[in-house]
């Protein structure tokens, strides 16, 4: 960029006062982004609805599922459904909100290195994904206790590290995809609609067109992440998951970063 080009021409760049210099760390910016995701009505209600969804699904399973299915892991898996749908929306809004609500002007005036803001938003997404898993564990524990106490549920507390890791990874992939779509499309309605529509259209197309079937095995995130959701990843599933994450998450993220850094803020 021209501004930076002229900067290098400036012979001696004086060092700013040490006290005021303190460049905000990415950690501090991540805390700020988490606060921004939760301090507006939209953010608050999305999180509240997610928590309600946990409670509702745990309740449904408590009343409807057969007692042998009422295990800690069973309850936990079902709590991951609402967050898989709603967390990406929070991720999208965290980025698009900067443009639609014009906060970008303030954000990038305070932190001109926009890639640091982008990193903070991604890390905040990861933190939120981890928090959603923790909340899921909490609700699952309550469901399991209730199952043991009232419906003669199986009550098994077994949860392998692999299962927990898979759940975290799946949530991280989802919210990161949301952030990436938000960065690339820069508009809340467009990003939300395309986030849900594009993978669905792709799934429908690949199921109808035989020639695309092999492509779907590798590039349909819904298909490749299925074993992850079920904690049944085998050796050949990982490269397929990596390929589809590359297409649906890494690619839009890279393009979105370029757009974010280049876009003129007005």
């Amino acid at each position: 960029m021209t501004a930076t080009a002229t900067a290098t021409a400036t012979p001696a760049v004086p060092t700013p006062r040490a006290s005021a210099a303190g460049r905000p760390s990415v950690g501090r910016l991540t805390l700020v982004e988490l606060r921004k995701m939760t301090d507006t009505r939209a953010g608050f209600w999305l999180l509240a609805v997610t928590a309600l969804g946990y409670a509702a699904l745990v309740a449904v399973m408590f009343f409807a599922a057969d007692p042998p299915e009422q295990t800690f892991y069973g309850f936990f898996q079902i709590t991951m459904l609402p967050s898989a749908v709603l967390l990406p929306v929070i991720g999208i809004l965290a980025v698009t909100g900067e443009w639609t609500q014009r906060g970008a002007l303030t954000t990038f005036t305070l932190v001109p290195e926009r890639q640091r803001v982008a990193a903070a938003k991604l890390l905040a997404g990861v933190a939120l994904a981890a928090a959603s898993v923790a909340a899921g564990l909490l609700f699952a524990a309550l469901g399991n206790l209730a199952g043991v106490a009232f419906t003669d549920g199986d009550g098994s507390w077994q949860l392998t590290a692999g299962a927990l890791g898979s759940a975290v990874l799946l949530q991280v992939v989802n919210i990161t995809m949301g952030v990436a779509f938000g960065m690339l499309l820069m508009s809340s309605p467009l990003a939300i609609v395309l986030y849900f529509l594009l993978p669905t259209v792709w799934s429908v197309l690949t199921s109808m067109i035989g020639a695309l079937r092999t492509a779907a095995e590798w590039l349909d995130l819904g298909v490749t992440s299925m074993p992850l959701a079920e904690n049944a990843m085998s050796g050949s599933d990982w490269p397929k998951l990596a390929a589809s994450v590359g297409l649906w998450v890494v690619l839009p993220l890279a393009a979105g970063l370029v757009r974010l850094v280049r876009r003129e803020v007005s």
């Binding site: 501004a3 900067a7 905000p24």
Partner: peptide
Amino acid sequence: PPTGGGATVDGVPYRRLPNP
């Protein structure tokens, strides 16, 4: 981003200020 030229604040281009 300017098409040409540049600007500094206290001798530093704005985007180089650590904590503007």
